[in-house]
Structures are given as structure tokens and as C-alpha cells.
């Protein structure tokens, strides 16, 4: 009896669920992370404090707790009946955004001081300095850590499975409850995750090569 062939529809459903969940949360975390990073380096103290608090709190919160907040507290604040998928995306997106923010910030910090100073002394404005000098160089150092963060996000998305989102872990749990041998299921689920994480790391390696410059 082959677990994969017998339950192919279930596996496919779970695989697509994980991919979609990861992709949507990734977009949310990148957007939020960029905004928070902008707050953290801005010259306006209240925004800087907000950014620091956001990052410190989220980095020290277990993701499972964040899911519980999303499932039990968020509907009370907004309105009941938000789909579990949306709640999972917001929990994963907020959690990862704190790490994205730190990766972006250390990327900008890695650009040598002289570069920005030279740009300023050539008479470039703030936006020109950022657009033409700092960000192009920061992007290159930021891409590998962002890639690792996206892989971590894929692995973290498994937690959504126990909060009623149909993805790979949920299917593993379901098949194990039906009575299939857990080790057989495990091999296929692990393989599915490896496919996704390899695809992400290949994508980011490609990006790195595309953006690489000979110095």
C-alpha cells in the first residue's frame, strides 16, 4: 500500500497550501519588514521607538503564542469570522517581518560609510544617495539572509497546520490519525518540504548571481 499514491489528492492539496501560505506571508513580511526598517532608521524618535519595540517584542515571542493571539484575540479586536488562512498569514507575516527588518538594517549598515559620504559631498540629495548609492549595494548583501529567512518561513508555516489551515503538516496529522504508518508519511512530507526549500534557495542563488558585480 503506497501512502503517496493512495492519497495523492490530499498531498497535492497540502503542498499547494504550504506554497500559497508561504508566498503570501513572504510578501506581507517583506512589505512590513521594509516599513519597520524605515521606521527604525528614521530621524523621528517616536517612529524609531516603535520600530525597536516591534522588533524586540516579536523576536522574543514564540510563534505558537502569536498564532494563539491571532486565533483568539484578533477576532475580538476586529470582527469575528476572519478565515484561518488570513489569521495564519498575519501571524507568520508579522513574526518574519521583525527578522526581515533586522536583515535590511544590517544590510544598509554594511555599506561603507565613505560611500554615502562621497555621495553627499558630490551634492546628491537624500533620495539620490539612497537610490543610486546605498540601496544598490545593500541589496547584494541582503539577498542571502533574506533567502534563509524565507526558508525559515516555509518551515515555520507548518505551525499553521494545527490551527485549521490545510497545508502539509495538517495532512501529515490527518493521515497519521487515519492509521497510516507515520514513518512512510514522514518521508513524503519531508520530501515535499525539501522541494520547496530547495526551490527557494535556488531562486535566491539565481538572484545573487544576477546582481553580482565584479569588483
Amino acid at each position: 500500500m503506497n501512502v503517496l499514491l493512495d492519497n495523492f489528492a490530499l498531498f497535492r492539496h497540502g503542498f499547494i497550501g504550504t506554497v500559497v501560505l508561504t508566498a503570501v506571508s513572504a510578501v506581507l513580511s517583506l512589505v512590513l519588514g521594509t516599513l519597520v526598517a524605515a521606521c527604525r532608521v528614521s530621524p523621528v524618535p517616536p517612529l524609531r521607538i516603535f520600530g525597536t519595540v516591534w522588533v524586540t517584542l516579536l523576536r522574543n515571542t514564540p510563534l505558537t503564542l502569536l498564532f494563539m493571539i491571532a486565533v483568539f484575540v484578533a477576532p475580538q479586536i476586529l470582527f469575528p469570522g476572519i478565515s484561518y488562512f488570513t489569521l495564519a498569514v498575519s501571524a507568520l507575516g508579522c513574526y518574519t517581518s521583525a527578522f526581515v527588518c533586522e536583515a535590511l538594517r544590517s544590510g544598509v549598515n554594511s555599506v561603507p560609510l565613505g560611500q554615502a559620504e562621497a555621495a553627499r559631498s558630490l551634492g546628491m540629495t537624500f533620495s539620490q544617495t539612497l537610490r543610486l548609492i546605498v540601496l544598490p549595494q545593500a541589496t547584494r548583501t541582503v539577498i542571502p539572509p533574506i533567502g534563509s529567512l524565507m526558508i525559515a518561513l516555509t518551515k515555520n508555516s507548518a505551525i499553521a497546520g494545527s490551527f485549521n489551515v490545510a497545508e502539509l503538516f495538517a495532512q501529515q496529522k490527518r493521515l497519521s490519525e487515519i492509521g497510516y504508518n507515520i514513518l512512510e508519511i514522514f518521508v513524503w512530507i519531508a520530501l515535499a518540504y525539501l522541494v520547496i526549500t530547495f526551490a527557494i534557495s535556488a531562486l535566491f542563488r539565481l538572484l545573487e548571481h544576477r546582481l553580482a558585480v565584479a569588483r
Partner: peptide
């Protein structure tokens, strides 16, 4: 490379 939750669940279920 493995999600920790998957690993823990396999240990638990086996």
C-alpha cells in the same frame, strides 16, 4: 532542513 514541528510530531506519533 526539516521543520521542527514535523520532526517532533513524527517522534510523538511513532
Amino acid at each position: 532542513a526539516l521543520p521542527l514541528l514535523i520532526l517532533i510530531f513524527v517522534l510523538y506519533a511513532s
